[in-house]
Design a protein around this nucleic acid. Structure first.
Length: 227
DNA sequence: GCGACAG
DNA sequence: ATCTTGTCGC
């Protein structure tokens, strides 16, 4: 598939300006794909100054792997909270362009709208691909919230500056919840529905689990090749 | 001013 | 993210 490349800022100030410039391109209309036929998971693994980006496309119904691609590379930017996209997206875009199928939804590791400038990794990837995207974070980043109920499916608002920017969603009974926020062309209700469909037995979506495993094995291969 | 801070 | 043993539970 064709994906726009990501700008390569030299400083944090430049990176923030790029996020502010792209934010107006976000489509927050929704509702977006409910029970999408093809769902992609993306992730990046690191070791020293090497990294491996991975994309895994699953059948949304059976959760079987349909296609998977990787791209080795170097971190394009230091890790700065709020600017994660500039570190991971260059290699992720490269991997996505090797995809022969077009997913109906992309599930990102991290945040979307729940971001200091309302433009997290999931939003950025949505604008670059033009596809529906959502962010699923494992730990708190921005926003305040009350713990959701203990049952799977329970959730609470993630609030930032008095606005609802995401949901803290319980995907398994009595297990630490995940942080869901929309990226592009999906509403929060649909995003949470889709996350629950992707978590029939684990806390994290099958898409992120598959992409995580693939990125780690691709990283091992890259390390072996460079040695 | 100080601390916290997706991956 | 990554460095790391054993251990509890499905």
């Amino acid at each position: 598939m064709k994906v726009c490349s990501i700008a390569a800022p030299a400083t944090a100030e430049e990176a923030e300006a790029i996020q502010d410039a792209l934010r107006p391109r976000l489509d927050l209309t929704g509702p977006g794909p409910r029970d999408p036929a093809l769902v992609a998971g993306v992730d990046v693994a690191y070791a020293d100054d090497l990294l491996a980006a991975a994309v895994v496309v699953l059948d949304g119904t059976t959760l079987d792997v349909v296609e998977q691609v990787t791209a080795p590379g170097r971190p394009a930017f230091g890790y700065v909270p709020g600017l994660l996209a500039f570190r991971e997206l260059p290699s992720l875009v490269e991997a996505l362009e090797r995809l022969t199928v077009t997913p109906d939804l992309i599930v990102c590791d991290g945040y979307g709208l729940a971001h200091p400038r309302r433009f997290g990794l999931a939003c950025h990837l949505g604008v670059l691909t033009g596809l529906p995207t959502i962010g699923v974070g494992k730990t708190a980043f921005v926003g305040s919230f009350e713990p959701p109920g203990r049952d799977r499916g329970s959730w609470s608002d993630l609030l930032l500056d008095g606005q609802v920017v995401g949901r803290v969603l319980r995907t398994r009974d009595d297990v630490k919840p995940v942080f869901v926020s929309v990226g592009h062309r999906v509403d929060l209700e649909t995003a949470c529905h889709d996350v629950l469909a992707l978590t029939p037995r684990h806390r994290l979506p099958e898409t992120t689990r598959a992409a995580d495993r693939l990125s780690r094995s691709a990283l091992k291969a890259a390390l072996a090749a460079s040695a």
